[in-house]
């Protein structure tokens, strides 16, 4: 059983540039920041190494950080420009019973994160959900389609974005609210 700082030290030794830092200023658990294009390597290492054995991905959440600047378009509709989208990974080891939270941040306009579906199969649907609702593209995901919204929902329309605007029509039908 290891705590977050020990795990951070191990990762820092193994992947120098992929590990961006550790955020200890949280009321609950510390968060390790990772490079979005190397998260799959870090994940595989976390799972395979005997002293870590993070064999279970409890949760994967896509988040709109809404930390860009607010801009108004010609119609007076406000949207967010710049800033980041993030993915949080909550990991757990069934055998060693320790937990860790990883976080990757990727630019809002070109949100790309490596898929960890190869490491933990459970990530498949979680990543599809993050793609569907937040609009994060997972590279090398085998089947990146919408999962909860209809398959024919307008491209680029992701409901959990903070600047999401309800469409007036869906397939020619008026959206009642």
């Amino acid at each position: 059983m290891k705590n977050a700082e020990e795990i951070f030290e191990i990762l820092k030794r193994q992947f120098d540039d992929a590990i961006i830092g550790i955020d200890k200023d949280t009321p609950t658990e510390p968060i390790i920041n990772v490079d979005p294009l190397q998260i799959h390597k870090v994940g595989a290492y976390l799972r395979e190494t005997d002293e870590l054995k993070f064999d279970s991905l409890m949760c994967l959440s896509g988040v709109d950080d809404a930390n860009g600047t607010k801009v108004k378009d010609a119609e007076g509709y406000e949207f967010i420009q710049g800033g980041t989208l993030s993915v949080y990974y909550n990991l757990h080891s069934v055998e060693l019973k320790h937990k860790i939270t990883l976080k990757v941040s990727t630019p809002r306009e070109d949100a790309k994160v490596e898929s960890v579906e190869n490491v933990w199969k459970t990530a498949d649907w979680h990543e599809r959900e993050a793609y569907d609702l937040v609009g994060i593209v997972f590279l090398n995901h085998p089947d990146l389609r919408r999962i909860l919204m209809p398959y024919d929902w307008a491209d680029g329309s992701h409901p959990l974005r903070k600047d999401y605007k309800n469409p007036e029509f869906y397939q020619g039908m008026k959206v009642p609210y």
């Binding site: 949280t26 988040v63 939270t101």
Partner: peptide, 23 residues
Amino acid sequence: KPPKGTVYTRIENPRGELGYFII
């Protein structure tokens, strides 16, 4: 009005691990 931060808690629901991740 909680302080800034994230939390992930999980409980054993009848169907399995129910987790809430709140920012």
